[in-house]
Design a protein around this nucleic acid. Structure first.
Lengths: 132, 132
DNA sequence: CTACGTGCAAATAGTTTGCCGGAAC
DNA sequence: GTTCCGGCAAACTATTTGCACGTAG
């Protein structure tokens, strides 16, 4: 809050944000790295991670984190819900309104101050359904 | 499903399950390791992880996975909701009924087959509130 | 010109695995 | 006795970090 450190919009940071905002696929850091590398071949994976963390702290991207393996990132910082296919691992948005009354109920049930919630659905996507 | 591999109830597995079921603190693998070590000093961390994975596959425990760092484990396999304090990192249960109609709405909104959902709340716990 | 950011490589953290001896059944 | 499991240490994967140079503002 009191940290008024000046941030620079470098080419790397700009490209990383663009990649994230131009896909709906909730990619991993590694995938983002490969994409950015197409335009900026000498970029490093460390830079990708560093910038994802900066952008996350700025509230410009979300980190999604499922059971195992890598984190995934989402260029849409507005709270919304996700679906993960338990067969192929793909992650999709679930387009229905955020249920803010859930926060109320959680507050009543727990007594804690609730800032936000995260809701993730699991199941089988259409493609995986068809190949069964 | 077709895997009818015979499992043994070893002392290690038994203690790990007991530790998990006798706490409401959703501990990390490391904490479980330290607890089990009090009764079985030569147990190894690898064994703890191996057994947590076995128990998870059996559906006897849940793996909870938040933003960063380690996984946490829950000895209560019934679906229920959690609250994470964003200040101190503690995880608590949120005692209100599972909202199965959310699965319906997600199905309508996405067209996918939904098996389950996971709902996590974030905020500030009472202790952290008092120390501010 | 002054921080802040980058590339690179090495370090870390969490978790998994290979091996071989040991124990459950 | 057979098969699964445990201890140990090494391996692996994802992510972070130290350093010296580069560049945005």
């Amino acid at each position: 809050m009191a940290d008024e450190r000046q941030q620079r919009m470098t080419i790397q940071r700009k490209l990383i944000l663009e990649v994230l905002q131009s896909t709906t696929s909730h990619p991993t850091a590694d995938w983002i790295y490969e994409e950015v590398r197409k335009k900026l071949p000498r970029v490093s994976l460390g830079t990708v991670y560093r910038n994802l963390n900066v952008l996350k702290e700025n509230g410009e991207v979300l980190e999604l984190n499922y059971g195992s393996g890598q984190s995934r990132y989402d260029g849409n910082p507005k709270n919304h819900y996700h679906f993960t296919c338990q067969i192929c691992g793909a992650v999709y948005d679930v387009p229905f309104d955020v249920q803010n009354e859930l926060n109320e109920r959680a507050k009543e049930a727990s007594g804690f101050v609730i800032y936000k919630h995260r809701l993730e659905f699991y199941g089988m996507c259409n493609e995986c359904q068809n190949s069964h």
